[in-house]
């Protein structure tokens, strides 16, 4: 019992959510183990983003429970969950458009330090502390945004914005990272880059990742476990091999040609 609790970081139990008469989530349960990459897939409109919102606190569920890191967070607002170590990205990338790339990361690092009760920097200094800038630059180099470090974020291309947003989430040093379609709109090479990155942060920093994604190459290469959602219900949960072999999943989601057998 205790070992199960130990290894479960995010536990969603029988969550349901309706918009008016439309039930978007029906008794969805899942548990994410510490350090795994958990993928949620399903056809468009299956309820993935809604489930994400419920897990991140952007909207509250009608029934069921959400436990994160041993605490019941079902009714907690987002910023509280973030302080417990939950990071996220949005389906349409959102960054601080007037800030430079570096300042985007700096505010994130400062927020993290503030949330953690750490010293944000020397008490009277106005410029961000040297460590903060150093850390920001390192992250930026790491993800390959060095060439735009001083550009205003609103001027970045679609794909670069997405990567910047990813970086903002990463800068919070979350224990779990919630990624809603992290590679949408990226070129194939960038996708591979992001996939490698996700793999790396999991391996090196032990960050748990929960993601939705429509690029099955990414999902199949990364995920330790996959959950399939359809019409707000869990159709299947299992390993990559299980899901690939599942006839029902093939029908409602994978199709025949692009990821042909």
């Amino acid at each position: 019992m205790s070992t199960i609790l130990m290894s479960t970081i995010l536990d969603v139990a029988a969550v349901s959510k309706s918009y008016g008469p439309l039930a978007v989530l029906k008794d969805v349960s899942l548990d994410v183990h510490r350090g795994e990459i958990f993928a949620i897939i399903g056809p468009n409109g299956a309820g993935k983003t809604t489930l994400f919102k419920v897990m991140t606190g952007e909207s509250l569920c009608d029934g069921g429970r959400v436990r994160f890191d041993g605490a019941d967070v079902t009714r907690e607002p987002s910023h509280r969950r973030v302080r417990r170590g939950m990071g996220r990205t949005f389906q349409v990338a959102r960054v601080f458009r007037d800030f430079t790339v570096r300042d985007n990361i700096v505010v994130a690092i400062e927020a993290r330090r503030r949330n953690g009760g750490e010293r944000v920097g020397p008490a009277l200094s106005m410029a961000p502390a040297a460590e903060v800038v150093g850390e920001a630059d390192e992250l930026i180099r790491d993800i390959g945004l060095d060439h735009v470090r001083h550009s205003q974020a609103s001027l970045l291309s679609h794909g670069d914005k997405k990567r910047l947003e990813f970086l903002i989430a990463l800068a919070l040093r979350p224990s779990i990272l919630m990624l809603d379609e992290p590679t949408a709109g990226m070129s194939p090479s960038d996708r591979i880059g992001i996939a490698k990155l996700i793999q790396r942060i999991r391996d090196e920093r032990g960050i748990t990742v929960v993601m939705t994604e429509h690029d099955m190459d990414i999902v199949f290469s990364l995920a330790s476990r996959i959950m399939v959602l359809n019409y707000g219900e869990v159709v299947a949960t299992g390993s990559v091999a299980d899901i690939r072999a599942d006839q029902a999943v093939r029908e409602v989601y994978l199709g025949k040609e692009m990821y042909g057998a």
């Binding site: 056809p43 468009n44 949408a184 429509h214 199709g255 692009m258």
Partner: peptide
């Protein structure tokens, strides 16, 4: 952002 079946 489209599911593989829908893309097809």
């Amino acid at each position: 952002g489209l599911a593989p079946v829908i893309v097809e």
